[in-house]
Structures are given as C-alpha cells and as structure tokens.
C-alpha cells in the first residue's frame, strides 16, 4: 500500500522576541464551566499574557462541559488582543477522541492548533501549528523534522535541562517555549487515578476530579507531599517557578514562557512574570511575592538545572 508523501513547507524563521512572550496554558483541571469561563474572561481583561491556550488536554470526558462556552471565551480573548491557541488532547485512543481531533484540525479556522499527540500532526502538516509539551521534542533532529511539517512553536517537555533548551533555541527553527509556572504535567494514563482512589472506574467516574481544582495531593507513606493526581494525568506536587531563570533562558533564545493555570490569582502571577521579564522587578523579590500569592505551594526548578524535578536550586543558571 502506497500513501502520498506528507506535505512539506519551508520553515518560517523564528520570530525574535527580545521581551519574551507569556502564554497561559490550557486549564488542565476539571473546573466548573462557569469558573472556566470567568477565569478566561478575567485573563482577557486583566492578565498581561500574549497567548491563551484553550481546549481539553487531559480527559475527553470533560470536553462537553467547556464546549458551550468555548466560542464566547475565544471572542472575549481575541477582542482583548490575545492570541488564542487550541490545545489538542494529549493521549488519543478511542474512536470518539480520534474523530474529535480530526474535527479540531479541520475546524480551527484561523486559530493556531497545538498538537499534544501525534494523532493530530498529520492533519496539521503543511500549515503553521504549535507542538505542545506532551509531544517528545528532545533534540534538534526532531525539531527540524517537525519544523519541516509546519511547526513554528514548540513548548518543550518539562524534564529538559537548560543545556538542551539552549541547543534547541539556538537552532532557530521554531519559537521555543518553556514551562515556567504551576504544577508540572509528568505522566498520562488510560486509567483514571482520581476514579481509582475512590474505588471507581473511568467509565463510571462520577467526575470526582472536579472536587480538586488544583488536583488531588499524593503523599508518600511517611507523610511527604510528592505528586498530584488530575484524573488520568499525574503532576508534580511542587509548582515549577522559573522566575530566577527567566533572564538566562531569554538570553539563550527562549521566546516564550508558559504559565499553567492554578486556582490562585493567575492575573497577579502573570503580572509578576511580566514585570520580571521586563526587568521592573528583581527575581528574588518576584519569588517572594509569588510565594505570598500561593502560600500553599512548595516550589521547584530542578529540571532546568539538570537535577531532580522536585529539587529547588538556589544557584543561578549557567
């Protein structure tokens, strides 16, 4: 069986963004539809972010809840001058999910789509699109291949150290984005651990994940906080905070920083990152203010320093 070759387009040169752009990632948690809509309205009106991602990345069973509000949220964000990117599902398995991904690629119109699974990449090939953090981009070979397919922006996997980030940013093949705030997505499964923790199955999950707007804490047997469960997704317990590394990463050519929505005041968080990127506030003070904004959080920056993801490294990058 012979299939037609994939359409290739020449790579577009990465835009130089000396200021560093801010992206609000898609909401990963199962927030109520009203909360989800109001969150984005407020981001549209008040948050100094350039881009906002919308779409269900974790569990397609949640999609019907946000679908009715999607159009008005897109309109509000665009009216406020934000770029809107539609993020795709991160683990595509069922016929329903596959069909939804085909529809997403076909119906996005002039909105950019972010691929979080290779199920959707063939449908996106030949036009500008983004690659999300759930697609494995570890090296320049992969980056070059995806760039030839039309990928113009790549949010890197959480575990990449600064050395690798620098190599990819220097390749100049796509706008490189780094996850800079919030609980880190670490793993995906077909199994729902929120349901399992209540002795339920995914099919009859009763949407118990909605009870934890920042995910369900997972502690070790001896009482240390360790991970967070968000339905089929497993996340870090600690929040990544790269305020202290922003300048060095920008220097390496990283063009964008992603903030993952948490239930804290994300408008204030976005202002801190914006101010820090623009040099209006020094990273240490920004870090202290961030800790005040999210008093329940413990912070980490280990991955970017080439260490354990949960580690907190005080020394500067480089």
């Amino acid at each position: 069986m012979t299939l037609p070759p994939l359409r290739l387009i020449p790579p577009s040169p990465a835009r130089q963004r000396p200021a560093g752009a801010l992206s609000m990632g898609p909401v990963l948690f199962n927030w109520s539809p009203d909360r989800w809509r109001d969150f984005h309205f407020r981001i549209a009106d008040e948050a100094p972010v350039d881009t906002v991602h919308l779409g269900e990345m974790v569990c397609w069973k949640r999609q019907p809840f946000i679908a009715p509000h999607l159009a008005e949220v897109v309109d509000r964000l665009r009216a406020a001058g934000k770029e809107v990117v539609l993020s795709s599902l991160a683990l595509v398995m069922s016929e329903r999910e596959r069909e939804a991904m085909r529809d997403l690629a076909a119906g996005a119109g002039d909105l950019m789509v972010e691929a979080n699974d290779l199920a959707i990449t063939a449908d996106l090939a030949g036009r500008r699109h983004a690659i999300g953090p759930m697609v494995n981009v570890y090296n320049e070979g992969t980056l070059a291949f995806l760039s030839r397919q039309g990928a113009c922006r790549v949010c890197l996997p959480a575990e990449l150290p600064a050395r690798a980030v620098g190599v990819l940013a220097a390749a100049g093949l796509a706008d490189i984005e780094v996850q800079a705030f919030g609980r880190l997505p670490l793993a995906l499964s077909a199994r729902c651990y929120h349901a399992r923790s209540r002795s339920l199955h995914k099919d009859g999950c009763q949407y118990v994940c909605a009870q934890d707007p920042d995910g369900m804490p997972v502690d070790t047997m001896d009482g240390r906080s360790f991970l967070t469960v968000n339905g089929t997704q497993t996340m870090s317990s600690r929040y990544v905070d790269l305020l202290a590394e922003l300048a060095a990463l920008k220097e390496m050519g990283v063009g964008r920083f992603r903030l993952w929505p948490q239930s804290c005041d994300m408008v204030a968080v976005a202002h801190l990152f914006r101010d820090c990127l623009d040099g209006r506030i020094d990273p240490q003070e920004a870090g202290e203010r961030l800790a005040d904004l999210v008093p329940e959080a413990e912070f980490a920056n280990g991955y970017i320093h080439g260490r354990e993801g949960h580690a907190r490294v005080a020394e500067p990058l480089g």
């Binding site: 502690d219 047997m221 001896d222 009482g223």
Partner: peptide, 18 residues
C-alpha cells in the same frame, strides 16, 4: 511511632501553609 511522625509531618505542613 512511624505513623505518629508521618501524621506530625502532615500537620506541620498544613500549619506552615496557613
């Protein structure tokens, strides 16, 4: 004793957060 230590760790953490 180990259970007590684990419980204390948790309550300490909760207190620190408050």
């Amino acid at each position: 004793l180990e259970r007590d230590v684990a419980a204390m760790r948790r309550s300490l953490r909760a207190r620190e957060q408050r």
